[in-house]
Each structure stands twice: as C-alpha cells, then as structure tokens.
Design a protein around this nucleic acid. Structure first.
Lengths: 238, 238
DNA sequence: ACAGTTAAAAGATACGAATGTTTAGGCTTT
DNA sequence: AAAGCCTAAACATTCGTATCTTTTAACTGT
C-alpha cells in the first residue's frame, strides 16, 4: 500500500493550486506515487482505504480517481482483489492529457493548417503502404465524388474533407490518424466563413482536383515517391 | 429552448450505444442540437429544465453536461440569465475529443516515433522563427548539458528530451507543440527498456551530439534552411 | 441619471445512502 | 479432479439534499 503524506508537506511544490477537494486529492496521490517510485502494475489500494485515510466522501474520492484514470496514471479494477493500480504508459492517453493542459488560447486556423500539413506526408505514405482493396474502392468512389463536386466551392470542400478523412483511416498509426482527423475536423467546421468570398481564378478548382487525382493514384499504386511529390504539390499550391 | 425528443425515436441511429444514463442523455442532447442546427452562442436551456424534462437527478444531468462541455459542444455560464450555450469551435478541445474516441489499441512506440518525426520540421522551423533571447540562453545551457551527458546513454537521453521539449516550447503553435510534447513524453517514459542493450559504436553518441549542436545553432541563427537540413540528419541517422 | 448595493438565478461541489456490476476465488457436484 | 455454480469484495452509477460561488438584473440613494 501507499500512505498519503500531509498536504502541507507538499504545498510548496504545487504550482497551479487545485480548486476542488477531488483535484487536490488527485495531486496528492500523484505526488505520492511519484515519490514512492511506483511502477506500472503496482497495487495502490482501494477506494475505501483512500476514503478512510482522507475522511472524504465516496463521490469525492471517486472523482479524484476518475481524474487520475483519465490522465493515464491509474487503472481501476473491480472485483475481489481489485482496487487501484498504476497504469501502463499509453501514448494516446498521455497525449490527451497534454492537450488538456494547453491553455485555451485562440489557437488559430493557421496553426491547424500548419499541423495538418506537417502530418500530410506521413498519413499519405502510410496509406500507400497499407491500402486494401476496400480502401482502393472507397478512394475511387470519393475521388469521382470530388470531380462531380467541382460545380460549387462548398461541395468541393466537403468532398475534399471526406476524401482526406478516408485516406487517414487507412493508416495503422492511430495516434497520427487521430491528430490528423481532429485537425481536419476543426478546419472543416471553421473555414466556412473565410472561404466563401474567394472568387478564385477559373483554373484553380480543377487544378486542385488534378492534385488530388494524382495523390489517389499514387496511393492506389503504392508508389511512395509519387505520394511525396503529390503531397508537396498539395501543400505548396495553396 | 430546445425540446428533447423521445429516446426511442432516435434509437436506430445509435451506433456505440451508451452505457450510462448520463452518456445516453449526452448523446440525445447532441443529436438534438445537431438536428436543430444550432449555432455557437445559441442558448440551449438550464440544468433544471433538462432535469425537469428528463426526470433524472441533478448529478446525472450534471454529468451529461460535463461530458458535452469536455467535448467542446457546450459552454456553461452560471448566474442569472446563464445556462447552457453552444460553444464556439475550439481546435484543441476537438482534438482532445477525437483522441478520446481512439480505441485503446497498443499504439506502438514506432507509431509515436513516426508522429514525432513528422512534426520535427514544423516545430524546429517555428523555433528558428520565433526564438527570443531567453530561449537562446536556455538552448545554449541545455546543449552544453547534453555534451556533459555524453558519459552515459541514460543521461544523454534525458538531456536530449529536455532539449527537444524546450525547443517545442518556443513554437507559438500550441496544438502542434502539445502534440509534439505529448509524443515526446511517451517516448521518454517507455524507451528505457529497449535502449539499454544498445552497445552502440563508439562514434554514435558524439555523432548524435553534433547533430543537435547543428540544430541548435541553426535555430539560434534563425537559419531555416539549416534547420531543415539538421532535422533531416536527425531523423535519418537513427 | 448614475453609481453602488443587493438579491435572485444559476451552476459547482460535496455528502451519504442505495442499488447495480464485475471479478476472483472458493465450494459443490459429479 | 474437472466443470460449473455461488458469493463476497470491489468499483460504478444514481439519487436526493445541502451549501457555496458566480453572475447579472433590479433597486436605491444621492
């Protein structure tokens, strides 16, 4: 088991001082776990033990544990011999928590575009490497949808997003795929405003279509060099 | 206000059927919001109204609302005239939610490395563009720390992570920076195991050091081309 | 009119109790 | 001794209630 030390003893370390009792307890527990140098799989205790030690109500302790679980620190197992355990490291959970600590600044559309472009090559190369017959059929269908959508910019953007999202789903790298799709989702929900007034030279949209056509062909052929070239065109030609 | 329709009416749409009443309510509310085509800033109602409509307890409704807030769907304002409102789109919150839906598959270390490498150029170019005097001083300090850490692989890895993390903090792109740091944090916590048995040719570590030296110099000089070249070396020479 | 004060509306947090679910290990039956 | 049932231990969910904090509209006194 582990024993919680007095909150006062660790008060000078606290940076963002927690606002609720549950948060405070979560911080205390995390500090104690780190201090004790506990490793994944180690048994931490049971909810009732924590409750007895702290004198807090069940719901409050439960909330603290929920926070630690969401941060990927603890794993909770019900049943006999169950309780709280140190969780194995999980990149997705960690990433989520890191994102949670990001101050809610007005992260701009430009930031999202930069992030998306940085991932474009990885995502599309993965697609070229791992595409299945189903993937290929879907991509062909979405590409012809993109061509049909050339009539209006709005339809084109929508078809465009659908195509890129489907490509991202091919990648076996769930982290990269999730980040990419999340970024894409944001862009699709926020770009309606500043795109409409874009008169765009006549050839612009058909040019965009040809770039996507080349990209899809490269993916279907599994030609990674061609994918890299198509991505380069896709990113620079904006 | 908006009116919740009967759960039966929408049952056929539900894919991942929610397990708790709170989750079910959150799904119903989200569906209703989408169906009604509500826009950011729109007033949805108050907790008590939802409670009256559904007959659920305060804690349950509160939990559903907490979920929707975490997903970046709702914004809650206390006080007179307050209540639940549609939240403006926020990329960080969205990204977090997307990550939440990722199935908890054993996302491999290799995936994390690929994601990190994809972001390396963006992060380091941003650093070269936006470094301040404080940043430069810190980087110089961390670089000499890296040199001193050449004695043992473990110390070198630690110093290496500290340097990369500091570089990432320079970028004004909070999303990209958060994703990068999260990935780095995972790698630093999980790579202790499979690195120790690496006997490494004598020149390997000093070679790694020289690459980082070149990278830091390029960032300090604001030379983006040199940054790109250093990143290329950094990524390929593993 | 205007500035300061007050009070009501709304959410946030915490509590304790009751009930449901999951799991592991023991027990029973063949 | 193997198969399956049973039950106690642990977490999960929900409820109702009480108290606190925040916000803003209304009021009041100059």
């Amino acid at each position: 088991m582990f024993k919680l030390s007095d909150p006062e003893k660790t008060a000078h370390v606290q940076v963002a001082l927690p606002r609720t009792r549950a948060e405070a307890l979560a911080v205390r527990m995390e500090e104690e776990i780190i201090r004790a140098g506990m490793a994944p799989g180690d048994w931490v205790g049971t909810l009732d033990e924590i409750r007895a030690q702290t004198g807090l109500a069940r719901a409050t302790v439960s909330e603290a544990v929920r926070l630690l679980r969401e941060r990927g620190i603890l794993e909770i197992r019900p049943g006999r011999g169950g309780g709280l355990f140190i969780a194995p490291p999980n990149p997705v959970v960690r990433l989520r928590h890191t994102l949670l600590t990001v101050r809610d600044t007005p992260a701009t559309v430009l930031d999202a575009i930069a992030l998306r472009e940085a991932l474009e090559e990885l995502i599309n190369r993965d697609a070229a490497r791992h595409r299945s017959q189903t993937d290929i059929a879907d991509l062909k269908r979405l590409l012809s949808g993109l061509q049909r959508a050339l009539k209006t910019p709005e339809a084109f953007m929508r078809a465009n997003w659908a195509l890129h999202e489907r490509i991202a789903e091919i990648s076996p790298n769930v982290m990269a795929s999730a980040v990419y799709k999340g970024t894409l989702g944001y862009l699709s929900s926020s770009s309606a405003e500043f795109r409409t007034d874009d008169p765009a030279a006549d050839g612009y949209w058909s040019g965009r279509y040809r770039i996507h056509e080349a990209l899809v062909r490269a993916i279907i052929n599994g030609n990674e060099n061609a994918v890299v070239e198509a991505v380069r065109q896709h990113n620079t030609a904006v």
